[in-house]
């Protein structure tokens, strides 16, 4: 055999062309977790992957957001705490334009109060009424009970709305923005209106 005959290339080609070493230590479990990781980042309809995970997370987030939003919305509508003030709407379908909200202080109905007051008190009351506008009738004579803040513990009765019949004839309710109409006042107003009607 000459140097030229010793063909290294041929020797290696023959030896390694179909070389298949049988090894017992090359099990699937060695790369199982790595393949699982690769599969997770690839989209497949049949297996759980990152796209499904993202979908689940997005759905959960949206659902949580909507639920929280709904709960928050409901709590705004129905006061959960008794300390909260109740805002009642005043309904007077025929005299909508005549409704305004007062800002503060009690303005007591003329019928209820003026009879019981002394002359001096009446005068001071009228003066204060001039300074801070109250609920006045269109003629300026009738005054409607004050609209003021009350303790929330009083707000146990069912919701009350003021209807046109409850108001004195040709009365104007002047209501100012940001004021609070509270239930006891309305109740008092209702009571006085009824007693008036009875008297009549």
């Amino acid at each position: 055999m000459s140097r030229e005959e010793l063909n290294i290339e041929q020797l290696y080609q023959d030896a390694f062309k179909n070389y298949k070493p049988e090894r017992n230590d090359l099990s699937w479990f060695d790369i199982d977790s790595k393949v699982a990781r690769v599969n997770f980042f690839k989209f497949s309809l049949t297996s759980f992957n990152i796209y499904y995970a993202a979908l689940v997370v997005t759905t959960f987030t949206l659902a949580s957001f909507l639920t929280v939003n709904q709960i928050t919305g409901n709590s705004e509508k129905i006061p959960s705490s008794p300390d909260k003030e109740l805002f009642l709407p005043v309904v007077n379908p025929s005299a909508d334009d005549n409704l305004q909200v007062f800002e503060n202080e009690s303005v007591v109905s003329e019928d209820e109060t003026s009879d019981n007051l002394t002359g001096k008190e009446k005068l001071s009351k009228e003066q204060s009424a001039e300074k801070s506008p109250g609920i006045e009738s269109s003629t300026g004579k009738n005054k409607i009970p004050a609209i003021r803040k009350i303790d929330s513990s009083l707000l146990n009765s069912p919701e009350i709305s003021i209807v046109h019949e409850d108001l004195a004839p040709d009365s104007t309710i002047i209501l100012k923005e940001d004021d609070v109409i509270v239930r006891d006042t309305i109740l008092r107003f209702e009571k006085s209106s009824r007693s008036k009607r009875k008297k009549r």
């Binding site: 699937w28 790369i31 199982d32 393949v35 699982a36 599969n39 690839k42 497949s44 309809l45 049949t46 297996s47 992957n49």
Partner: peptide, 11 residues
């Protein structure tokens, strides 16, 4: 299709 059984078989 990322079928694990097929991948194992191929391996």
């Amino acid at each position: 299709k990322h079928n694990r059984i097929a991948q194992k078989e191929l391996y």
